[in-house]
């Protein structure tokens, strides 16, 4: 057990333990694989598809694929970077991401990836969909127009062992994240803050406090996304 295995990521040899997800192995070795739905320590969703890497010519998501001995993984190749940029753009047009008016600006991982990929304007036409907001519970404000359905909240926010957030519907237009209003009303302020913090975008906000740290002084305002891994 716990024997070390070797994988190669973009030509760099990485030693790790069997079973670790590729994205985490990469991180340990100073390689940033862009991601949006990944959350270390919880069951992978594999839903944003941004972390797709190539293993033996096959695309696999780095957040959900365990490293195996001898794997040769390619991540930083034009074909994948191009696809990642396209996915980021898809997310921008599929929702309503008006960054200057969003409390999450500067802390938003989608916005930060937009910068990383130097997206000036999405190549796809804006869809300006109208999706609802839910402000029925005490501390949570949920703006579905910004939700990228990464399922982080669905997977991790529980109250009394039950899911507070859940998917609803199927198919491109109908699918959305639903809040269980009864349960959400029981969340403490700290739990609501936790929900806001795990949301990569500004879809879950905590009510009653905004712009506590000014725009310009936020996480990705200071250092671009991934730099904390790449510059280690």
């Amino acid at each position: 057990m716990n024997d070390k295995i070797k994988v190669t990521i973009d030509g760099i040899e990485c030693w790790t333990e069997e079973g670790k997800y590729i994205i985490d192995v990469a991180k340990e070795n100073g390689i940033y694989i862009p991601s949006l739905c990944h959350m270390e320590g919880i069951k992978p969703a594999g839903s944003c598809r941004i972390c797709n890497v190539q293993i033996n010519g096959r695309n696999m998501t780095a957040c959900s694929t365990p490293a195996a001995d001898g794997m040769n993984i390619e991540s930083n190749i034009p074909e994948l970077e191009e696809m990642r940029k396209a996915i980021v753009e898809v997310m921008f047009v599929a929702g309503n991401h008006f960054c200057p008016a969003c409390e999450k600006s500067g802390n938003c991982e989608l916005q930060a990836l937009g910068y990383r990929y130097q997206m000036m304007v999405p190549r796809f036409p804006y869809e300006f969909p109208e999706k609802g907001v839910n402000a029925d519970s005490k501390y949570i404000y949920h703006d579905r127009n910004r939700c990228i359905i990464c399922k982080r909240c669905v997977r991790s926010i529980m109250k009394d062992g039950k899911h507070v957030f859940a998917l609803n519907g199927r198919g491109g237009e109908k699918l959305h994240v639903e809040i269980d209003t009864d349960l959400a009303s029981q969340l403490t302020e700290a739990e609501a803050q936790e929900a806001m913090d795990i949301c990569p975008v500004g879809a879950i906000l905590k009510k009653e406090r905004g712009y506590y740290s000014p725009i310009g002084e936020r996480k990705f305002d200071k250092a671009p996304i991934g730099s904390e891994i790449e510059n280690k």
């Binding site: 944003c48 359905i149 199927r170």
Partner: peptide
């Protein structure tokens, strides 16, 4: 395909709509 997508993957959920509009 738009109706039947489980919606989990961002491109399957959203790019299909973009393709349809195009």
């Amino acid at each position: 395909f738009i109706d039947e997508s489980c919606g989990s993957c961002a491109p399957c959920r959203s790019l299909t709509l973009i393709l349809k509009n195009k």
